[in-house]
Nucleic acid binder design. Sequence first.
DNA 1: AGAGTCTAGTTGAAGAATCAACCACGCTGC
DNA 2: GCAGCGTGGTTGATTCTTCAACTAGACTCT
Lengths: 159, 159
Amino acid sequence: MTEPRWLNADERRAWLALVSINTLLPAALDTKLHTAGKLSLFDYTVLAMLSEAEGRFLPMSELAARSSASLSRLSHVVTKLQKRGWVERRPHPHDARVTTAHLTEEGMATIVGLAPGHVEDVRGLFLDALTEQDVLDLARIGEKVVGRLDSDHWILREN
Amino acid sequence: MTEPRWLNADERRAWLALVSINTLLPAALDTKLHTAGKLSLFDYTVLAMLSEAEGRFLPMSELAARSSASLSRLSHVVTKLQKRGWVERRPHPHDARVTTAHLTEEGMATIVGLAPGHVEDVRGLFLDALTEQDVLDLARIGEKVVGRLDSDHWILREN
DNA sequence: AGAGTCTAGTTGAAGAATCAACCACGCTGC
DNA sequence: GCAGCGTGGTTGATTCTTCAACTAGACTCT
């Protein structure tokens, strides 16, 4: 039992700020999106990832990776989005284990309608507080942290 | 209808990293804490804030502010912590609207037991990835963002 | 070809978060 | 001294998330 290395003042500042952002930011974006279109930030992210994918479809596991979610969580959400007509499930032609999630026209229309407002919200709530240098620093630091949490994370993929 | 200002490459990197951290970090800490003591990161935060408060008690609204939560969320959680014997509710002596949450001896023992492991987890999952300069930059940037999200946030209080 | 193992995904139940409605108290101004 | 408004807090319904259990197809090794 050696004494743990407690956080120093700056570590504590960084940690508290991160935890606070972590609760405040998604909450703010969630309520914005919920009033704009009855969906959560996570729902939005799923639709956005599909809309940016080639052919506007992705296997469930790839979609889960790109939205940092468990397959279970994704499966439930896709079921919900499917009921709203925004997403379809289809079997993969060459591997019967795989399900692909496809963005429907209606789903595409939804996200196209929501995107400008959402980007403005991200700016207003977050980016507008930062200088160009801050943005660079945050990208660098953020990617380091992501790498530590998940060294195979998709945002770190070269390409 | 003017064209929205889409994110540039660095803004997108910063934003994606933040969102990813935001889902991965609490999830990792939640599972650690859950195996260590059947509580969530939010439960832990509530106990920690009480343990650091003078007299080990705080009004519900102050506790909500310090854990960045809604009063509703906090109320549900305090009810749960109360059932486990870690927290007590008491009426405020001079303002009958106010409820104060008090950390019990048992609650204090719980958090004292959990804290060293939790600090190690925070280091292992997060701080160890960063240089001293990174920590400073993150503290600076993080506090800017918190200030934008909630200009009265307690972590920004002088002293 | 069959057993074992791994990968992909789904499901149901249980616990947690949010939202809106609500109650009780305090403060202000008349 | 009481009407009206703001504050502090709780509650219950609904929605979300997680967890564990499970199905089914693919791969490997013999």
